[in-house]
Design a protein around this nucleic acid. Structure first.
Lengths: 346, 346
DNA sequence: AATTTTGTTGTTACCGCTACCAAAACCGAG
DNA sequence: CTCGGTTTTGGTAGCGGTAACAACAAAATT
C-alpha cells in the first residue's frame, strides 16, 4: 500500500503532484516540468495543455523537491546583528527588492553581535542549502570561515570593508567615513573634538570608526584625549548621557561626533534641554543620515551612507555569481562611497 | 554511471552525504539519521560513533532532503507591507527570537501594501512548503485565502483584528486604540480634534483607526468635520505638512491626533518651528510609542502597542500548531492590549 | 525454559522533482 | 522518398534523506 493515496479527484485533499498534472494533460512529468520551468523547450500546444491542467488541478510545484533534485536553491541567507536596528532595514529592502525580481527568497536571522551565534546560523543556513549568504558583520569565527569556504557558495559581507574578506564585499569604509567627518570638523576650526561610538567589542565597524577618528586627529595635529572618547550603548538616552557627561567633565570640548545609531539625536535633545547652543557651545555631528537629523533644529551634519545601494548591489553581485556563474567576481570588493552633509549643527 | 562521484576521501570536494557518514561509522543511514534527529532512540555507543564520524567527515545534513522526505519543514513565511517600516521590526524580532529557539527559520518578503503582490508571495511561500505563515495585512485576495485554506497550514494575521480572520490572529485592535486616544483627548477638554492617518486604501489598519476616531467623537458629542480629517503619506515631512495645513485652514483646532508612523514627530517639529506652543496652542497625540516621543520636548502622549509581544505570541501559537498539532487553537484570536501614555503634549 | 516484551538496528520504498540520455516526431535537402 | 539533423517528448535513475516495518538481541515475564 502506498504511503499516501493521492490521485483522488478531491481537490481539497493534500496537494497535487506533478504526476497528477502529467496524467491529466496526458504527458510525461518531464514535459510538465519543462513547460513550467523552461517554457521555451516545449511546443506551444503542450505548454497550453499543461498549463490548463495545472490550473484545473490547482497544482502548486514543490520547490523543495525541485531544489533537491536540481541541486539549486533560490534562497539567500542574511545574518544581521539585530533586526530591530533601523539602519539595516534599508539594506534589507534593497536586497529584498532585487532578489524578488529574480524569484529568490530571503531568509533572515540575527546573530546578536556574537560571532559564535553567527557561526551557528551560518551552519543552519548551509544546511538549508541557501545559494548565497549575506553577512553584515565582518568578524567571524575561523570555523565559520572554513565552513563557508568548504561549501563553495558565494558570500557578501556588507557592514564594513574588512582587511581579509571571506569572498565579496559591498560596503562603504567606516574608517574613511569617520575620518572624513572628523577632518571636516577640524577644518571648520573645532579643536577639542569628542567622539562617541557604540561598544567596539565584536564590532569592527565601531573599531574602524574610532581608527578613522584618530587618524584624522593626527592629521589635524590635534592631541587625542581619552577622556573625550566614549563608548556607549545604542539609543537616544545613551546619546543624551554622553553629551552631558562629556561637556561637564571636559568643558573645553567644542564638538561631539556621534558615530553610532541615533546617539546624535539624543545628544541634541540634551543640549536643548540644558540650553547649550548648538553649534555655539558645542558642535554636533552624526554618522548616519536618518531622516530625523534633517528635521530637527538645528539640523545635524552627518554622513549619508549608501544603505539601500548596498543591499541592491549585494543582491546583484550575488545573483551574478549564482545564476551566471560569474566566477571572475569572486573576491570583488565594491566600495560604495558615502557623502558628507554639512548642516546647521557644525 | 552515478551522477556524482562522492565518497572520494577528499573533504574539500562537495559535501558529504549521510551514507558517507554511515559507511565511516559502519552503520546504516537510518542509524545516522536517528543519532542526529532522535538521539534518544539510539544507544549511547552508536550515538558517539556516529557523531565522531560526522565530525571527522565534516558532514552537514541536507535539510532540504529531510524536509522533503519527512514532509515537514522548519520555515515560517512572513509577509509585511514594507520592511523598512520601523514599527514592524519589533514584531519581527519577537518572532525571530522565539522561532530560533525551536530551530525554525524565518523567510521574509514585502508586499508593498498590495494584496495581489501578497497573493503572489503567499503562493511562493506555499510552494517553498513553509510550515506556517504570518501576515501583517488583514486584507487578502479571495484566491489568497483559498490557497491558504487549501494548503492547511496555520496562519497568523497580526496587523489588526479583522472581522473574518483567515485562521489565527495576534494583534491589538486599531479601532479601540484610536477610540481610546480620541476619548482621552475629549476628556481632557479638547473640542476640535483633528485626525491624521496614513492612506487607508488597502490598509484596514488606517480604516479602523479612522473608525475609532469617529466613534469616539460621536460618544463625546462632537461633530465630525471632514476638513480636519487628513490622510497622508508616511514620514516626518508629511507630519509637518499636516500640522501646518490643519492649523492654518481651521484655526479653531485645538488638538491633532496623528494615527500613523512618526507623523506626530514631524508635526511637533513644525509647531516648534512656528512657535506654536504644545499643548497651549494645539495638543498633540501619537499612535505608536517610538522611543523618540518620550525624549522630545514636550514629550508626546501616545499609545504603547505590544509590538514585540505580538511577534512572540505569534511565534508561540504557530509553533503549538505546527509542533504539537494543537488543532484546538485553530481560529484563536488573541487581543493584546495597548496602553495609553499621557505625556506633556496633551 | 519458553514466551513475551522491549529496545536497537537494518531494509526497503518512497518524498516530488529534475538530469541525463534515448526515442520519436518533424523537416527541408538531395 | 529517404536521409541526416533538429526539435520535442519520454523513461529512468537518482537528489539525500525519512517512514514504516522487519529483524534480531537482550531483558522481563510466566
Amino acid at each position: 500500500m502506498p504511503k499516501r493515496l493521492s490521485g483522488d479527484g478531491n481537490p481539497q485533499t493534500g496537494s497535487a503532484r506533478m504526476r497528477d498534472v502529467a496524467a491529466r494533460a496526458g504527458v510525461s512529468t518531464m514535459t510538465v516540468s519543462r513547460a513550467l520551468n523552461e517554457p521555451g523547450k516545449v511546443s506551444e500546444e503542450m505548454r497550453e495543455r499543461v498549463l490548463r491542467a495545472v490550473r484545473e488541478i490547482g497544482y502548486l510545484p514543490n520547490h523543495l523537491a525541485g531544489s533537491l533534485s536540481s541541486n539549486r536553491s533560490t534562497t539567500i541567507g542574511l545574518i544581521v546583528p539585530s533586526i530591530d536596528n533601523s539602519i539595516y532595514t534599508q539594506t534589507v529592502k534593497g536586497l529584498s527588492e532585487v532578489l524578488k525580481r529574480s524569484g529568490f527568497q530571503l531568509m533572515i536571522a540575527e546573530s546578536g553581535y556574537d560571532p559564535n551565534e553567527e557561526e551557528e546560523l551560518i551552519t543552519i543556513f548551509l544546511s538549508q542549502r541557501v545559494s548565497g549568504l549575506v553577512l553584515h558583520s565582518t568578524e567571524h569565527t575561523p570555523q565559520a570561515a572554513e565552513k563557508i569556504r568548504k561549501s563553495g557558495i558565494p558570500v557578501v559581507e556588507n557592514g564594513n570593508i574588512p582587511e581579509e574578506p571571506l569572498d565579496m564585499v559591498v560596503s562603504f569604509s567606516n574608517r574613511e567615513a569617520s575620518y572624513a567627518m572628523t577632518m571636516h570638523l577640524g577644518r571648520l576650526g573645532y579643536r577639542k573634538i569628542a567622539f562617541a561610538s557604540l561598544y567596539s567589542v565584536h564590532n569592527d565597524r565601531s573599531q574602524d570608526r574610532l581608527q578613522g577618528y584618530h587618524a584624522a586627529l593626527n592629521q589635524l595635529g590635534l592631541d587625542p584625549d581619552p577622556r573625550i572618547v566614549l563608548e556607549t550603548e545604542r539609543g537616544l538616552a545613551a546619546g543624551a548621557e554622553v553629551m552631558a557627561r562629556v561637556v561637564q567633565s571636559v568643558p573645553e570640548v567644542d564638538a561631539l561626533f556621534c558615530a553610532g545609531d541615533v546617539l546624535a539625536v539624543g545628544a541634541l535633545f540634551e543640549c536643548q534641554k540644558r540650553g547649550w547652543p548648538v553649534p555655539g557651545r558645542i558642535a554636533l555631528a552624526s554618522f548616519d543620515d536618518v531622516d530625523l537629523l534633517r528635521h530637527v533644529s538645528p539640523s545635524v551634519s552627518t554622513l549619508r551612507l549608501p544603505r539601500y545601494d548596498i543591499g541592491e548591489r549585494t543582491a546583484r553581485i550575488l545573483l551574478s555569481r549564482i545564476i551566471d556563474g560569474a566566477e571572475h567576481l569572486r573576491g570583488s570588493v565594491i566600495d560604495l562611497k558615502f557623502e558628507l552633509i554639512q548642516r546647521e549643527s557644525t
